[in-house]
Computed example of a mutant assay.
Amino acid sequence: MLDAVDNSYSASEVLGDTCFADKLLKITLPENISILVTSRTERLENFELPYGTTMIKLEGFNKEEQRNYIDMFYENVSDFQCEEVKKLNSGNPRVQYYVFSKIFDTIEEALQYLNPNGKDLNGIFKKAIKKIDTRITSEIISFEELCRSLVELPRPIPVDIITSSTDYNIEKLESACSEYLIGIYFGNVIITFRDKDFENYLKTTIKNGELAITKIAGTLYNKQFDDYYSIKYLHIFLEKTQKLNEILDSIYTINNINISLIEDEKNEII
């Protein structure tokens, strides 16, 4: 199964590479074996789907699925409340995930938020991020730089790369992800997007990433011999900042690297 394979195409474009899915979808499969692929409908044209591919459109929750999902978050939800939730977002699982798990503690609060005309993902993201506007100007500027860094850096991102490239330490970063960046997954050592929808929202709303890219380039350059992530992605940001001397300095062999690498990692760098 290739889940959200359209994201892999987006990532390969950033890296200037060919998406693995094109080759995989062309292989001859054994009898009674199939490959299941999920993708956004509008991106299907990016794929080289083989002849005879069966297309199945995924719909929102049906009545039974809606009941099972809402019971995972709230107790004693009436049939009427359950139907109202489904009606106000067309049974969209992702919209409901953000409303139920990230914003409201009771079904009554969730319904009050969704009424009168429902909510879409962009509306939910906007409401969460707009809360930063109550902060002082310097915090708003730092937050926008953080958002741009999250968009620019290939995922998953080591937390220390973010903290070295922005004004955020681990505590501030964790707080920002919890309060404003509800579409971000913050782990022990990595940070990434929960889904492509939140990434796309940040890409279209957070502007002027030049300063963020320059800081990222400096961070990766300083770690280029001691950190695999920096070794792998440094060239992307040096090219974006047009730092020719640093590009020439970063041309190295495996012998220059101070960390242990498995064979696949060595081949990728070379």
Rank of each mutant, 00 (worst) to 15 (best):
D264T: 14
E263T: 14
I262A: 05
N169S: 08
F47I: 00
G60K: 03
S175K: 08
D105Y: 00
L44V: 11
R194F: 00
P93E: 00
V5H: 05
L121A: 00
N68P: 01
I191M: 13
E64S: 14
G91K: 09
H235Q: 14
Y252P: 06
E83I: 02
F100Q: 01
E42Y: 10
A11T: 10
S142R: 09
N222E: 09
E59M: 07
S178L: 10
Y98K: 04
S178D: 08
I157M: 14
Y98T: 03
D249W: 11
L25N: 12
D22S: 11
D3I: 02
F73I: 10
E75C: 03
A110K: 06
K86T: 02
Q96E: 13
S10V: 03
M55I: 15
V85E: 02
I190L: 13
E65A: 09
S12E: 11
L202A: 00
L44F: 05
E265V: 08
G123W: 13
D105R: 00
L153D: 01
F143V: 06
H235S: 15
F193K: 04
I251W: 14
L58P: 00
F80A: 12
F237C: 10
T28N: 11
V189M: 14
V37R: 01
P116A: 12
V85L: 15
D71K: 09
I33M: 07
K126T: 13
V85N: 01
E199S: 08
E263V: 11
N92I: 07
L220C: 08
C19R: 02
K131A: 13
T28P: 01
I132Q: 09
G91N: 05
E268K: 13
D226I: 15
R194D: 08
K232I: 08
K203C: 01
T214Q: 14
D195E: 13
F47S: 07
D17C: 08
S149P: 10
N169F: 09
R40F: 12
E48N: 15
E108F: 10
R155V: 01
N245G: 11
F198D: 02
L2Y: 04
T219Q: 02
K130N: 15
I236C: 03
